[in-house]
Structures are given as structure tokens and as C-alpha cells.
């Protein structure tokens, strides 16, 4: 994880002239505008009455700011046939995320601990096997998993989704903790052993208290991933048990008559808020997770 270098801009020739600075800043602002546009459009539209949505353009400020679309999206918008808004699905996602993130993070921490501090013959092979699970196209497990969840009585339930996310989240959490603990000094484990601590004690008293940063990275990464999941939600749930991404997709695609874009945008914003909030607060850790999932070493 080379993210340590992140906060220190490097020195590359101080003599860059004025014009090149103007060009550099101009380009950066142009790109920033491009990246921000969808979010701005969503926000502006969600606060417009429908008449303004159709009369104005995407970047026009609302003449009359209104939160009516937010209220409607939360409590009245139609998802499929029921018109109770997305609040129920929001809570589905919350329940799903909290349990799945908790369990997968804890198990990943344990796995990382074992794979680095209690090494045995073939441990790297096992790690490789687990690691590959991060990168499979999940289409390959959809059919068997649907059958399995049905047999296990978990079909179309939040517990079923939690299970799926734990299973396929383990790969990432194991990867993160393993790469973090591999840099954790072995001597500390040895010292604790001589002091009389055993397997669990060493983990809970020595490693875990030092794992703050990687726990944050893992929790944020898992939270974002699981909250944003659509494929599993769409494949393994129906009706009321769907997570918010699936519900949002339904709202956007099933409305009949005049499309209520402002309500769609408000619903999208509601679905985005938790991850957006996490990103604003812990963006640094999110980036670290992103990087750790791709480049190690």
C-alpha cells in the first residue's frame, strides 16, 4: 500500500511558468466540472418541481426550491406495485450492510492473522485460492447460489443476502488484513508468546488493537461495495426484501405516464447518501482500500 506518500506533493521543477500553470489549472477545473456534473444535475433536479424539470435544462438552478420530491421518494414513490417509497428498502440495505460488513471484516481479520503469523505449508496456495474469489465474474455463481438459497430457506431474505455478501466479501477482507499483517512485526507475536499469550490472546490483545487503520479501510470498502451491490440484490430478492439499489432501479424504470425525474433524482440521492457520507468522511481510507485491492507490494 503505497498510500503513505499521498499527502506530500512532490517537487518537480519549481520554474514552471505562468502560462503552463494557467493551462494546468484550466484543465483540472474542466475535468472537475465533467466529473461533478452528474452529481450536480441530480442535486439540482431533486429540488425542482416537475414543471421546472421539463421547462428548464439540467444545469438551471431551481426557481422554487422544494423538498417535495425527497419526501415523495422516501415515502410515496411506487416501486413495482406498492407505493410506499424507498424507505423500507433503505432499511433493508442498512440491515444487510451492518451484519455483512461486521462478519466479513472480523473473519477477514482472523484469516489475515493466521495467514501471516501462523504460517504453514501450503498457506500461500490457500491464500491464492481465496484471493481468486475476489475477481471472478459473479455470473458464474448466480445459478447455484439461487438454488442453494432456496434449499436453505434463505431465498429472498435479508439474511440470505448477508450470507452471500459475507461469502464473497471474505476474499477482499482476507486480502486486506493479510497484506496489513504481513508488515506487522513477527517479533511482537514472539514476544507475546514468551510472555505467555496464546493464539486468541495474541490476536485480541496485540494485533487487533493495532489494526485501526486497516479495520477502517476494510469497513469502508465493504460498506461501499455491499451498499452499492445490484447484481446479487436483483438476483436473489423479490418485492419487499430488495435492497435499495434494486428498488431505485425499479422506480426509475417502471413509472408510467409522465416521468417524475425529480423524484427519481431524489431517490437516487437518498440511495447515494450513505456511501457519499462515508466517502466524504473517510475518503482517504476508501482510496487505500481501492488501491490495496489492485496493487500490493
Amino acid at each position: 500500500m503505497s498510500s503513505k506518500n499521498w499527502d506530500s506533493p512532490q517537487m518537480v521543477q519549481g520554474s514552471a511558468n505562468r502560462w503552463s500553470r494557467v493551462i494546468i489549472y484550466g484543465l483540472l477545473i474542466f475535468f472537475a466540472a465533467f466529473y461533478l456534473m452528474p452529481l450536480v444535475v441530480m442535486l439540482l433536479t431533486s429540488f425542482k418541481p416537475l414543471s421546472e424539470v421539463y421547462a428548464g435544462n439540467i444545469l438551471k438552478l431551481p426557481a422554487h426550491w422544494t423538498t417535495a420530491s425527497w419526501v415523495k421518494a422516501w415515502g410515496e414513490a411506487c416501486v413495482g406495485l406498492s407505493c410506499d417509497g424507498i424507505k423500507g428498502y433503505f432499511w433493508n440495505s442498512i440491515k444487510m450492510v451492518v451484519s455483512a460488513v461486521g462478519v466479513s471484516t472480523f473473519v477477514g481479520a482472523m484469516n489475515g492473522y493466521i495467514l501471516t503469523k501462523w504460517r504453514f505449508k501450503g498457506d500461500n496456495l490457500l491464500f491464492g485460492l481465496i484471493l481468486f474469489g475476489c475477481f471472478i465474474p459473479f455470473q458464474i455463481v448466480l445459478i447455484p447460489m439461487a438454488a442453494f438459497l432456496g434449499k436453505a430457506g434463505l431465498a429472498s431474505s435479508t439474511s440470505g443476502l448477508v450470507f452471500v455478501h459475507v461469502v464473497y466479501g471474505l476474499c477482499f477482507t482476507t486480502l486486506y488484513f493479510r497484506n496489513y499483517y504481513i508488515a506487522f512485526p513477527d517479533e511482537l507475536v514472539k514476544a507475546a508468546m514468551i510472555d505467555g499469550a496464546r493464539f486468541f490472546r495474541i490476536f485480541f490483545r496485540i494485533l487487533l488493537p493495532c489494526s485501526g487503520p486497516i479495520i477502517t479501510v476494510t469497513v469502508i470498502w465493504q460498506f461501499t461495495n455491499i451498499w452499492n451491490d445490484f447484481l446479487f440484490g436483483a438476483s436473489f430478492t423479490t418485492g419487499d426484501t430488495a435492497p435499495i439499489t434494486v428498488a431505485l432501479n425499479n422506480i426509475v424504470n417502471t413509472s408510467t405516464g409522465e416521468r417524475e425525474y425529480n423524484v427519481h433524482m431524489a431517490a437516487a440521492m437518498i440511495a447515494a447518501l450513505p456511501t457519499l457520507l462515508v466517502y466524504v468522511v473517510g475518503g482517504r481510507y476508501f482510496v487505500r482500500g481501492l488501491m490495496a485491492g489492485s496493487v500490493k507490494g
Partner: peptide
């Protein structure tokens, strides 16, 4: 730089089901 970095990276933190709604409209 930090703010700009955050702007360039936020699309990765949001579900495309969410941001796709905006793109579709744009």
C-alpha cells in the same frame, strides 16, 4: 489537490445504479 482528488474519485464510491440515473437523463 485533496479536494480535486476527491472529485475525480467519487464516481467510484457510488453505485452506478445511482449515478446512471443522472447519466441517463444527461
Amino acid at each position: 489537490e485533496g479536494t480535486l482528488r476527491a472529485i475525480f474519485l467519487y464516481p467510484m464510491a457510488l453505485s452506478f445504479i445511482v449515478t446512471g440515473t443522472a447519466w441517463k437523463w444527461i
